[in-house]
Every structure is written in structure tokens, then in C-alpha cells.
Amino acid sequence: MNRHSSASSKPPLLVLIGPTAVGKTRLSIEAAKAYGCEIISGDSMQVYRGMDIGTAKIAPEEMQGVPHHMIDICEPTYPFSAAEFQNRVRTLIAEIRGRGNLPFIVGGTGLYIESFCYDFRFSEAGSDESFREEQRRFVEERGEEALHEKLRAVDPRSADKLHPRDTRRVIRALEVHHTTGRTLSELLSEQTRESPYDLCIVGLTTDREILYKRIEDRIDAMLEAGLVAEVRSLLDRGIGRQYISMQGLGYKEIAAYLEGELEYGAAVELLKKNTRHFAKRQLSWFRHMKDIEWLEVPAEPNFPALLQSFHAIIAGKFA
């Protein structure tokens, strides 16, 4: 049987999404081995070299021989974007299919994954560097929360999806409104939502309290694994919090501790709180996507049963 065939004339694309700490990595490896996949990371932070612990980046020995892409492709000083993700992954998918393998996107960055799956166009709104600089000065004078409130006043839907500390994307959403007179959420809602791929999207979810416990356990494990030393190393290299990469969860909170703005305990609690909120936003984003087959991960995961359910979904989509 051709594992990669489907009734559609479009090329097949397997996608696994879900909030942080829900259990995507183990399932993705087993599925990739079963279906001859190459995995493409759909995580906006795992592109950065030297940022391993805080991004929960898969270790080479955990890959079990499965090829992984879009990991460690740029320095933390580089402003990686959803548009660049689209361009790179299009090329990757052609290469993976050329090798006779099934492309498999795995991750939790909703904008990256949805915009790729449905071929969103990011070029409709122009840029205005003077406006961006004006917003950066506003942040310096008034703070990130005040900037976020500016966005909420004109585009509450985008504000709900973006963390106040994600100033680059908040500024971009404001810039879209400034240059077009329309909101980013409006423009995104008008995308065709027609995919150039034969999509099989599987989403993992679990009870919120279970997920929050897993998040806290993961953060404790990251700290034991040396997250503070990793952030200190980045700061020592001159990679400060002005960079997009250092606005990521784990990095901004620990950097605030290392720079004397927070006590250690307060930084850890803030990190756990921010990660819980991030997971909530991830789920909210994914719930608004279409074409998703959801799998519930129980409190005590029965991995063979979960894998069997995953196989059933794929078998029903790709004959």
C-alpha cells in the first residue's frame, strides 16, 4: 500500500498541533516512523541556535533517526517571521516529497501553521518604518502593556491572541491598521482558507488542570536542566531582551531575574503563569481553525491507545 496516497489530487500534508507540554513529540516520532515522514518543526522559537532548554527542543538522540527540519537554522539575533516560515517550508516540502517521504508539520505556533496550511498572503499590508520606530519609542516611554492596550482599542481579536511582551507582533498588528485602515484580524479572516495541500490535521488536547500541571513540571525540569545558565550564556554573548528570540517564554523571565529586576522565585512563578496563559491562547487559536481531528490525552496517557487513534485518523485520510 502507498502510505502517502490520497483521493485528492493535492499533495498530502500531515500536521500535529496542540498546546505546549501536551505530548506532541513522542507521538510525532512514532507516527513519523510508521508513515515514512520527515518532521518540520512548527515552533517559532526552535529555529534559534543556542536556545535549547527553554524551547524544549528535541535532542538528536530523541529523534530516533527521523529527519527534522526548521530547527537551529538561524542565530538568536535574526528576526524570523511567519512569512519566512512559509517560504522555507514550501521548499522543504517539495524536497521531502522528492525523496518519497511524507511531510509532517509538528508544533504549537498557531500563526505559522495556519498561515502555511492555508497559504495566507502577508504582502497585502505595507510597511512604515517611521511608524514602527514611533511605537518602539512609545514602548520605552510607556511600557509594553500600554502598547498592547493601543492594539486592543483598534483590534481586540488580535490583542487577545498576542502577549503584551510580544512587542514585535503587536507593533506589526498596529502597523497593518495604520497602513491599511483595517485590522489584522479582518485581513486574516478574509484569507481564502483553501489549502494547496490535502491536509490531515490532528490536534492534541487535555483537561486544562492536567495541562497546567504538565506545564509546571516541564518548567521545573527545564530549570534543573540548566535554563538559567542557558539564558546567562545568551546575555553574555550580547543577546539582550531587545531581540525577538529573547522575548520567548523562559528567556524574558529568567533574563529579568539575571538582570536584577525579579527575585528568582518571582521569575519562576511568572514563567509558569505566562506559560499557562500562552497554552490557553494556543488552544483558542487552534479551536478557530478548521479541518482538525481532535484527540483527548487523558490524565494517565495510554500511549498505545493514543497512537492507535492517531493511526485511524491518518488511515481514514490517506489511503
Rank of each mutant, 00 (worst) to 15 (best):
R276D: 05
R276A: 01
R276E: 08
R276N: 08
R276C: 02
R276M: 07
H277M: 04
H277E: 11
H277V: 03
F278W: 04
F278M: 05
F278R: 03
F278I: 05
A279N: 01
A279H: 00
A279V: 00
A279F: 00
K280D: 01
R281C: 09
R281V: 10
R281F: 07
Q282P: 09
Q282S: 10
L283P: 05
L283R: 02
L283M: 14
L283C: 03
S284N: 14
S284L: 12
S284M: 14
S284E: 15
F286G: 14
F286V: 12
R287G: 10
R287M: 12
R287C: 07
R287K: 13
R287I: 01
H288I: 13
H288W: 10
H288N: 11
H288G: 11
H288V: 13
H288M: 11
M289A: 06
M289D: 01
M289H: 01
K290A: 08
D291K: 01
D291G: 02
D291T: 02
E293A: 09
E293R: 07
E293S: 13
W294D: 13
W294E: 15
W294S: 15
L295A: 11
L295E: 11
L295C: 13
L295Q: 15
L295I: 14
L295V: 13
E296S: 15
V297F: 15
V297P: 15
P298E: 15
P298F: 13
P298K: 06
P298V: 13
P298A: 15
A299Q: 11
A299V: 15
A299K: 04
A299N: 10
E300C: 05
E300S: 13
E300G: 13
E300R: 11
P301V: 00
P301L: 08
N302H: 03
F303T: 04
F303M: 06
F303R: 15
P304R: 05
P304T: 08
P304E: 03
A305C: 02
A305G: 02
L306P: 03
L306V: 06
L307I: 07
L307G: 02
L307A: 05
Q308A: 11
Q308H: 06
Q308M: 08
Q308Y: 02
Q308S: 11
S309R: 01
S309E: 09
S309D: 07
F310C: 05
F310L: 10
F310V: 04
